[in-house]
Design a protein around this nucleic acid. Structure first.
Length: 426
RNA sequence: GGAGGAGUGGCAGAGCUGGUUUAAUGCACCGGUCUUGAAAACCGGCGUGCCUUCACGGGCACCGGGGGUUCGAAUCCCUCCUCCUCCGCCA
C-alpha cells in the first residue's frame, strides 16, 4: 500500500508510476481524489479534536463541581456537554467515512515500479537480462513431455488426483513422491547454508495476514477461502512468513532478517483455463520453498540482487537451462516494485517455464502490515520486504523429467542423488 | 464442544465499588553527575498513531479487537479473539 504521505508529497511521481502501470488519464483521477479526501480528513479531525478537547475539560470540571457540592452548576455544565455531543457525533461519522474511503482507494493502488522496471504492457515486453548462452539440451529420439513420462514410469497420477479432488491436484507416487521430497530437502538445505532460518508456518491464514502481504482484499479469487472460519489457504509461504513481522518495530541491527519455508501452495487459478495448463504446468496445489527477507531500505536492492544470484546457483546445481527476465511494468505484480522471473527450458515442450519470481516490495507490504524499525535518530521508518521462490517444484519437476530422459529412464541430477538414494527413475 | 478465570506501556505489576491517574511503582533501556574506569548512588529521559505549529509547544485517540451506556470508561454492558484451569472428545 502506498503511503498517503508519499501521494501528497510526490503526487506527480505517483501519477507517472501508475501511468507506467497502465492507468488511463481518467483512472489517474483517483490520485487527486485521495489527496482531496485526505485534506478533508485532516480538516475534519482538527474540528473533531477541538470539540473532544472541550468535552474532556468540561467533563473533568463536572467531577470537581460535584465533589465540592455545586450540583446546580454541574448540571448546567452537563447540558453544555450534551450540546457539544451533537457536534461531535456527525464529525465522528464523517471522519470514519472519509477514512474508509481513503483506505478503499489505497487498497486498489498498486506499488510504484522501480526505475529499473522497463515500460511495457504485457509479458512480451519483459526484458531478458540474462539469456542462456549454451546449447539447449538435445533430447533422445521420441522424447516425451512430462505428462507422458509421468504415466510411463508411474510417478505422477493426474487421473487419481482428479478422482480424489479434481483437476490440478496431482498425486505423486513411488519414485515420483521420493523425487519431490528430495528436491524439497535439497532446497531447504541450500537455503539454510545461505543463512536463512527455516520456518514451518501455518497453511491457513487469517484475513489480517492476507491483507498484510497484499493478497487481500480483492484477490480472494486466487485464494481458497474457508468461509466457516474465515481462513484462507496460503497461495505461497510468503503470506504466513512475511506476516511474522506484522506490527513489529525492529532495531536497525536486526537486519537482514532471512527466513525460508517449505509449504504446499494452493491457488484457485480462476479463469486460467486454456493454454499451458497441461500436466504440471499449472496446478492448484504445488510445493514451493520460499525465501523471505526483511531489509533496511538502503540495502534492499543489493539484497534483491543477492537473492537472484542465489536462485541462479540452484538452477546451476540442478543443471537446468534458464534465463532471467526483468518484468516490465505491465507484467509486474500488484505489490512489487521490481521483479525478476526465472524461466527454465522444458525441452520436450520446447518452451520456457516460469519457476521462480524474486521481488522487492520496498515499503508496500510493510506499510500494510506496519513493520517498522527505529533509525539512527530514533525515528520509526518502514522496512523493506523481499521474497523469492527457491524454488517452486511442479515446473522444476516437469523440466527435470523432460530434460533428463534417456532410453533407460530419467537421470536424477547429481546433487539430488544423496536425497533420492537412486540414480534413475525407471 | 462444556464450565470457570484472565488479557494494562519492552517486561513485571497497581488501578477495575466510573471523575486531580495527565495509566502508580519496580526492572530493563538511553543521557547526565560522581569516578582513572566501571559498579553503586543520584538527576533526567523512556510507547504508538494522528491533527496543529516556522519553531518551542499544544491537542486527540489507543489499557486484547469491535460496538454500546454516561456529562465523563482501563474501570459498567454487549460481542468477538486469545491465553490459563478443569471436564469431554481426539491424531
Amino acid at each position: 500500500m502506498l503511503q498517503i504521505k508519499t501521494i501528497h508529497e510526490r503526487t506527480d511521481d505517483v501519477k507517472n508510476a501508475l501511468k507506467k502501470r497502465g492507468f488511463s488519464a481518467e483512472e489517474l483521477n483517483v490520485v487527486d481524489e485521495v489527496v482531496n479526501l485526505d485534506n478533508q480528513r485532516k480538516a475534519t479531525q482538527t474540528k473533531l479534536d477541538a470539540v473532544l478537547a472541550q468535552i474532556n475539560s468540561k467533563s473533568k470540571a463536572i467531577g470537581g463541581l460535584f465533589k465540592s457540592g455545586k450540583v446546580q452548576e454541574a448540571n448546567d455544565m452537563k447540558k453544555e456537554v450534551t450540546d457539544l455531543k451533537s457536534e461531535k457525533d456527525p464529525l465522528e461519522d464523517q471522519l470514519r467515512q472519509i477514512t474508509v474511503d481513503i483506505q478503499n482507494i489505497l487498497f486498489k493502488l498498486p506499488n510504484m515500479p522501480h526505475a529499473k522496471v522497463p515500460e511495457g504492457l504485457s509479458e512480451d515486453d519483459n526484458v531478458v537480462v540474462k539469456d542462456w548462452d549454451k546449447p539447449l539440451p538435445s533430447l533422445i529420439e521420441g522424447a516425451k513431455a512430462h505428462w507422458d513420462l509421468a504415466e510411463l514410469y508411474n510417478i505422477i497420477d493426474f487421473e487419481l488426483g482428479v478422482k480424489i479432488t479434481g483437476s490440478g491436484f496431482p498425486l505423486y507416487r513411488g519414485k515420483g513422491a521420493i523425487f519431490q521430497r528430495a528436491l524439497i530437502n535439497f532446497f531447504l538445505d541450500e537455503a539454510r547454508e545461505a543463512g536463512y532460518e527455516e520456518i514451518i508456518p501455518p497453511l491457513l491464514v487469517n484475513e489480517a495476514s492476507g491483507i498484510g502481504t497484499g493478497s487481500l482484499p480483492d484477490k480472494e479469487a486466487q485464494m481458497y477461502h474457508m468461509e466457516k472460519d474465515n481462513l484462507f489457504l496460503i497461495p505461497t509461504a510468503e503470506v504466513p512468513v512475511t506476516n511474522i513481522v506484522r506490527n513489529v518495530i525492529l532495531k536497525e541491527d536486526d537486519f537482514p532478517i532471512k527466513f525460508c519455508a517449505y509449504t504446499p501452495c494452493f491457488r484457485r487459478e480462476a479463469g486460467a483455463h486454456g493454454s499451458d495448463v497441461r500436466g504440471l504446468n499449472r496446478v492448484h496445489q504445488f510445493d514451493k520453498i520460499e525465501i523471505v527477507q526483511v531489509e533496511h531500505p538502503d540495502r534492499s536492492h543489493d539484497t534483491l540482487d543477492n537473492m537472484v544470484s542465489y536462485v541462479e546457483g540452484l538452477l546451476n546445481k540442478l543443471e537446468l537451462p534458464y534465463r532471467i527476465l526483468r518484468l516490465c511494468s505491465g507484467d509486474l505484480t500488484f505489490a512489487s516494485a521490481l521483479t525478476y522471473d526465472f524461466e527454465v527450458f522444458s525441452a520436450a515442450q520446447e518452451k520456457w517455464l516460469e519457476v521462480s519470481s524474486v521481488s522487492n516490495f520496498e515499503t508496500f507490504q510493510t506499510n500494510r502490515m506496519k513493520c517498522r524499525y527505529k533509525d539512527a535518530n530514533g525515528k520509526t521508518q518502514l522496512a523493506h520486504t523481499l521474497n523469492g521462490s527457491a524454488l517452486a517444484l511442479a515446473r522444476i519437476v516437469a523440466a527435470l523429467l523432460e530434460n533428463n530422459q534417456t532410453e533407460n529412464g530419467i537421470n536424477v541430477p547429481e546433487v539430488l542423488r544423496p536425497y533420492t538414494r537412486f540414480d534413475l527413475i525407471d
